[in-house]
Amino acid sequence: MNKRTRRLLTVIAAAAAALLLWAAAAPLAGVDLTVDQAGTPLTVGPVLIALASLTVGFAAWGLLALLEKLTARAGLIWSIIAAAVLACSLTGPLAAATTAAMLVLMGMHVATGGVLIAGLVRR
């Protein structure tokens, strides 16, 4: 499998991981995934999860491709940036309406980030 195909599958797998967590938590376990967006409640559903995961995945891939053109240490630099972005992203779920929703949303962030970090730079 070539690098482009592997990276595309990694981005898709990252989105799928988040959607699997959503499916287990929201429809099956009944967790209400609502967050406060500037005073307005927002329910996090499968379309939002898929779009966000795919957007982040393709942006991560693009940054890695750019770094590969600019430096010999692209994988290391990208991994550090990706880990920092993942850590920062974990503050978003803190606005969840319930503790259960916060934990599920954090799990989605970690699952998506973990798949991308492990899969995009793999040789």
Rank of each mutant, 00 (worst) to 15 (best):
L70P: 12
W61C: 03
A52G: 07
T43Y: 01
W61M: 13
L42Y: 06
L67W: 07
A82S: 03
G57R: 11
V104Q: 01
L28K: 11
W22N: 04
P41E: 08
V110N: 03
D32W: 04
H109T: 02
A83S: 07
G92I: 11
I81V: 15
A60I: 14
P27R: 06
I117A: 04
L19A: 13
L63T: 12
A100E: 15
L94V: 14
V121Q: 13
A13G: 00
G92M: 12
K69F: 06
I117H: 10
L8C: 00
R73H: 13
P93A: 05
G107W: 08
N2G: 15
L9D: 02
L63F: 12
G114V: 14
P46N: 08
M1V: 11
A87P: 06
L20A: 14
L103M: 11
A118P: 00
V31F: 08
T40I: 13
I49G: 05
M106G: 03
A118I: 01
V104F: 05
S53W: 00
A83P: 05
T112L: 15
R4M: 09
A87N: 05
L86H: 04
L70F: 08
P27I: 15
V85M: 10
F58C: 01
A60R: 07
L21Y: 03
T112P: 04
L63A: 15
A26D: 14
T55C: 06
R73L: 13
G45Y: 01
P46I: 02
T71F: 08
D32N: 02
L116T: 14
L105E: 14
W22Y: 01
N2E: 11
R123T: 09
R123Y: 08
R4H: 06
P93H: 10
I81G: 10
A59N: 04
P27T: 10
V85C: 08
A25L: 02
G62I: 12
L67T: 00
A95E: 14
T71C: 06
V35R: 11
A96Y: 08
A84R: 01
L64C: 02
W78Y: 02
A97D: 14
T91G: 09
A72H: 03
P46G: 04
L76Y: 13
L19Y: 09
L21E: 00
L116K: 05
L33S: 09
L67M: 05
A101S: 04
S79T: 02
A38W: 10
V110S: 06
I80Y: 05
P41Q: 12
D36F: 03
V35T: 15
A59W: 07
A101Y: 07
T5W: 04
V11L: 07
S89I: 09
T112V: 15
W22T: 00
T43I: 12
A83V: 14
S53Q: 08
L76C: 03
L94H: 11
A17R: 08
E68F: 04
A24E: 03
G119P: 14
A74K: 14
L54P: 00
M106V: 03
A25H: 06
T98K: 05
L70V: 13
L120V: 03
D32R: 02
L42D: 10
H109I: 10
L51D: 02
V121G: 13
A72K: 05
T55N: 11
R73Y: 12
I81H: 07
L105F: 05
P41G: 11
